[in-house]
Computed example of a mutant assay.
Amino acid sequence: MNLLENLGIHQDLVTKDRVELSMPVQAKHLQPYGIVHGGINTVLAETAASLGANANVAPGRIAVGVNVTTQHLQAIREGVIFVVATPDHVGRTLQTWQARLLVNDRLTATATITLMNVPAPTNNHKH
Results as ranks from 00 to 15, higher is better:
M1V: 10
M1L: 11
N2E: 14
N2V: 12
N2L: 12
L3P: 04
L4R: 06
L4M: 14
E5N: 10
L7Q: 01
G8Q: 09
G8H: 11
I9Y: 01
Q11L: 04
D17L: 03
V19K: 03
V19P: 01
E20C: 04
E20H: 05
E20Q: 11
L21F: 00
L21V: 01
S22T: 10
P24L: 10
P24A: 14
V25W: 02
A27F: 14
K28F: 01
H29L: 15
L30D: 14
Q31K: 13
P32E: 09
P32T: 10
P32F: 09
Y33K: 14
G34K: 06
I35H: 10
V36Y: 11
V36R: 06
H37N: 14
H37K: 10
G38V: 14
G38I: 13
G39W: 11
I40T: 12
I40M: 15
A45V: 11
E46R: 01
A49Y: 01
L51A: 04
L51W: 06
A53Q: 05
N54A: 03
A55Q: 15
N56F: 03
N56D: 12
V64M: 11
G65F: 07
N67K: 13
T69M: 11
T69I: 11
T70K: 10
Q71L: 02
L73F: 05
A75T: 13
A75E: 07
I76G: 00
R77D: 01
E78M: 08
I81L: 07
V83M: 10
V84R: 10
V84Q: 15
V84Y: 14
A85V: 11
D88T: 12
H89F: 15
R92E: 03
R92Q: 08
R92N: 04
T93R: 00
T93L: 04
W97V: 06
Q98Y: 00
A99S: 14
R100V: 09
L102S: 13
L102D: 13
V103G: 03
N104S: 02
T108Y: 08
A109H: 05
T110N: 09
T110V: 15
A111W: 02
I113H: 03
T114S: 12
L115Y: 05
L115N: 02
N117R: 09
V118K: 14
P119M: 13
P121Q: 08
T122C: 00
T122S: 07
N123Q: 07
N124Q: 12
H125T: 15
H125P: 00
K126P: 02
K126C: 00
